[in-house]
Amino acid sequence: MKIKVNGKEIDVTGQNTLIEELRNIGYDIPSLCYDSGASHQASCMVCMVKNVANGQMIPSCSTFPQEGMNIETDTEEVLSLRRMSLELLLSDHRADCEAPCTVVCPARIDVAQVILHYDRGDKDKAYSLLASATDIDNLPCKDCKAPCEKACRRGTVDKCVSVRDMMMVLAEAKDLRVVEAKSVANVSKDVFSSKLGRYSDAEKEWLKEVYSQPSRCLHCACEGRDKCKLRQFSTNAGIKAPRYGVSSHQIVKEQIHVKGSLYFEPAKCIRCGLCVYNTNDGFTFKHRGFDMQVVIPEESKNNVDEKIADICPTGALFTV
């Protein structure tokens, strides 16, 4: 069977979906709710292409080629609709890609990650990460005005985390071993970064209660950001900030322990459904309309494989 793609005729068997055919001939089509090989249902619409033959916008991930199709993949119309779908998803996404402390650190220390290792009890890793970023014997924090503390989100809740003191204590703890520790932060201006915005009063109370470890750090940085396709495609689409005011019904910074090292953070979930369709009696949908959520019922947690985090296109499912 022959179809037209951006004016050129190509041969297709009709057995593969459009997105596979297009990717095969070198077009870079984004996809969030589709992962080749996994069961899925079209929902995100970032893979949209236009069939000029009937004027319809179609999700290429779920459409099979048909005789007479005339596909456009990168006209302004297509690209702007794809961009809008990302913007809409981001407007229901109250999360930080990067922690504000890391973003502002003049010494380029991944502050948030250091504290995260520290809070998880892995002091070696915390120390090593710090050491890899700066001259540990001559810690720049000593003479720094600590913009990290001014930027700290905890500061908007009650009092900021004492970042500087923490770094200094770590630097002086000479008994720690040097281990492999890498930062995954990307604070480049060219990379899209989702920003959480303000907490409501109720959220502040909730955060105080839940994030009560000694450092009091809220661990703003997204723990799935190294694999996050939402961020990647938003960067590719040139999105700087979502155009629509961010509002969401999801609870901010709620991290649900699923099983083993697997966690679920609903506020980052784009409801693509991949985790629902690819677990047996695991994740499931709840409610409809704007309230529609993906949830993991307590009794289903054991039915989930930790590998599911790999197909989640966002940081909503991550392993630690």
Binding site: A42, S43, C44, L89, D92, S247, R288, F290, M292
Partner: peptide, 21 residues
């Protein structure tokens, strides 16, 4: 429609809500 959308797709679940706002 904002309440009655099945909630699966982006444009419908989030888009209609943004229109409503």
């Amino acid at each position: 429609t904002s309440d009655e959308s099945c909630g699966k797709c982006t444009f419908c679940r989030v888009g209609i809500r943004r229109m409503l706002e």
